[in-house]
């Protein structure tokens, strides 16, 4: 039982971050905050991948003398790509927010919806 709680603590962290991020995306009406939530959500997945790749007692996967246990490098490589994707998403999102702000003078979702109803 305790093993599940503490032995797998990194998974708990992942789940906590994931739910936090997801909650922010759903509950916040401010577009910037939504993007922040999205980032937290994505980051939790990055952590999940790192956790998957970690081999107990392994070192950085660079061949050198005296080590024979290496961490699996593949998840890290994958996550590097995912991080780039995340950055790209964030920048597109921010770009959209900038233009939304120019068009609607606000970045609050409610107010945007209210303006749409009127026009």
């Amino acid at each position: 039982m305790m093993d599940n709680v503490f032995g797998l603590y990194n998974y708990w962290v992942v789940i906590f971050l994931m739910m936090t991020g997801f909650y922010i995306v759903i509950s916040q009406r401010n577009l910037i905050k939504k993007v922040i939530g999205l980032n937290i959500f994505q980051t939790s997945v990055f952590l999940l991948y790192i956790t998957i790749g970690k081999v107990e007692g392994g070192t950085a996967p660079i061949v050198s003398e005296g080590f024979n246990v290496y961490t699996n490098p593949l998840p890290s490589v994958l996550i590097l790509t995912a991080i780039v994707v995340g950055v790209a998403t964030t920048s597109v999102a921010l770009a959209l927010i900038v233009r939304i702000r120019e068009a609607y003078e606000t970045i609050e979702e409610d107010e945007i919806l209210a303006q749409e109803k009127l026009t």
């Binding site: 997801f22 577009l31 999205l38 997945v45 998840p75 959209l96 068009a103």
Partner: peptide, 30 residues
């Protein structure tokens, strides 16, 4: 201008979807 919030909403939903897929792929790799 309606295109902008539409694109943003798509972005949020799409990213959540893609991240879900990413989680799934990670678990399967695991």
């Amino acid at each position: 201008r309606q295109a902008l919030p539409a694109a943003f909403q798509y972005l949020v939903m799409g990213t959540i979807g893609a991240t879900f897929i990413l989680i799934g792929i990670g678990l399967m790799y695991m």
